[in-house]
Design a binder for these strands. Structure first.
Length: 478
RNA sequence: GGCCCGGUCGCCUAGUGGACUAGGGCGUCUCCCUUUCAAGGAGAAGGUCACGGGUUCGAAUCCCGUCCGGGCUACCA
């Protein structure tokens, strides 16, 4: 643990759409890191691209993360000592810093139009050259440039030194070094007065006192630019860790075309948040032992940056479902009832549903599966095709005969409980010498071949309805 | 193209020079338990540790090269 300093981690999503599972993973790591060090977690909204802004993003971030049990200390709604936490509300700060960089000679005004830049790039591409800003405006006399800047639209570009190199000791990748000669003169301040990501992160991370940066590996290539900005201001760059990407089955960065990627989708699919967190933590991190079931608290205690993988991890829906199932089984009956409630019709009698919980708990991975498992108790609309009531390789007549026996066996059974029903049905089975009695009864009573125990099913259904369904099935088979 | 990051069973991974005949989990398959389905238990199949060279008595582990994959390469983040 880092005892001496108070850790301040952050997650800085851009509000361009609904919360993505990849950013959740990164956020989770930041959360675990902050928590285990007794530090603070900051949410900062990086809305420096007006064109891509999506109003659904912020609510989605709050809903999704809270659902997963991830909380933070400072943010747009929570406020905090460094408010506002939305970059579009901090424009003056970035503009001031951009100007300072120009004044220091670390950046310069650029008056090139988008059209010229596009043409330049096209020409470079045609010549098979590297597409990079040709630094035309870098040669303008600073005084003259300042004068033009007061009247003409312009951007501010980073003045990358011609030679030398910069490097970091990445928390997950180790030493990484970049020769400066290959870097582009990145735009820091756009002509609309908004900063680009690069300027804004560096300024905010410093100003907000962020002590550790944990973000996706896609940001690794922009580190040298950030380093140059930190250096220009004489600020120490905080330690950084670039965590591996979450990949789709084709090994490419996970995106919509790979299937569900929005947190909302997993919630709607009835995936347990505990399972999602558990699974997600393991995509890119490994505890060094063979344990793998971890609650959030255990993750806070166990997770280590040093154990974060270097290679990207593929998203595995089957494994996620398995983790969800593990957590379903760990829930108390009452808790599971609460969780299942939103996934079944409100008019279904809660007391009856409650009784099914112990039986369905072992049979579901996601909450959505509960409904089908218990539907037979709440509807009388069963299949009408006689074939659906026949156990494999059984004829209608014999099945009908056995069903009648069960019917009379339970019609006056006392008490009408699962154990009593079991004893009775076993008696009938031996007497009739019929191995498929349970399946026949299950089909007749629930209309389906899968479900929880037949005896429990019959008991829960109740004597009258069970008898009625046996009669009905017999009639269909007759 | 350039820069950067990666590369152990289908997937997540253990492993940091000898205990590795490469271990665990998911998935798949088989069996047990259940007169259903699961859960649980027991097993099986599945890896020339990307490839090629070194170094070493000994390499998945160290070095070099190659190949493959990915990320970035915008007045997007």
């Amino acid at each position: 643990m880092l005892a001496a300093m108070t850790v301040r981690a952050r997650f800085a999503p851009s509000p361009t759409g609904e919360l993505h599972i990849g950013s959740v993973r990164t956020t989770l790591y930041n959360y675990l890191f902050a928590k285990q060090n007794g530090g603070a977690l900051v949410l900062r909204i990086e809305d420096t691209d007006q064109a891509r802004f999506d109003a659904r993003a912020l609510p989605s971030i709050y809903d999704g993360l809270h659902w997963l049990g991830i909380g933070w200390d400072e943010g747009p709604r929570e406020g905090g000592p460094h408010a506002p936490y939305v970059q579009s509300e901090r424009l003056a700060l970035y503009q001031r810093h951009a100007n300072e960089m120009v004044a220091m000679g670390a950046a310069y005004h650029c008056f090139c139009s988008s059209e010229r830049l596009a043409q330049m790039r096209a020409a470079q591409a045609a010549r098979k050259e590297i597409t990079k800003y040709d630094r035309l405006c870098r040669r303008i006399d600073p005084a003259q440039a300042a004068d033009r800047a007061s009247r003409e639209p312009h951007t501010v570009r980073l003045k990358v030194p011609e030679e030398g190199s910069v490097s970091i000791d990445d928390l997950v990748h180790g030493h990484v070094e970049w020769p400066l000669a290959t870097l582009d003169d990145q735009v820091l301040l756009k002509s609309d007065g908004f900063p680009t990501y690069h300027l804004a992160v560096v300024v905010d991370d410093h100003v907000m006192g962020i002590t550790h940066i944990l973000r996706g590996e896609e940001w690794l290539p922009s580190v040298p630019k950030h380093l140059l900005i930190f250096r220009a201001f004489g600020w120490a760059a905080p330690p950084m860790g670039h965590v591996p990407l979450v990949l789709g089955q084709d090994s490419k960065k996970l995106s919509k075309r790979h299937g569900a990627t929005r947190v909302t989708e997993f919630r709607e699919q009835g995936v347990l948040p505990e399972g999602l967190v558990n699974y997600l933590a393991l995509v890119g991190w490994q505890p060094g032992t063979e344990e793998e079931i971890f609650s959030m608290d255990e993750l806070i205690a166990r997770w280590r940056v040093e154990q974060v993988q270097k290679a990207g991890g593929k998203w595995d829906y089957a494994r996620l479902r398995w983790f969800s199932g593990v957590w379903v089984r760990r829930l108390s009956d009452d808790e599971l009832l609460e969780r299942v409630a939103p996934f079944i019709p409100a008019e279904w009698d809660r007391r009856v549903v409650r009784q099914t919980i112990p039986h369905i708990k072992e049979r579901m991975e996601t909450l959505t599966q509960a409904k089908d498992l218990i539907a037979f108790l709440f509807t009388d609309e069963l299949p009408t095709d006689p074939a659906r009531y026949l156990p494999k390789k059984r004829a209608a007549a014999e099945t009908r005969d056995v069903l009648m026996r069960v019917r009379s066996g339970i019609a006056d059974l006392q008490p009408f409980t699962a154990p009593a029903i079991e004893a009775e049905m076993k008696r009938i089975a031996t007497e009739a010498g019929w191995k498929d009695l349970n399946m026949a009864t299950r089909l007749a009573v629930t209309g389906t071949s899968v479900g929880f125990g037949v005896y429990e099913s019959v008991a829960l259904l109740g004597r009258d309805r069970a008898v009625a369904r046996l009669d009905r099935a017999s009639a269909l088979l007759g």
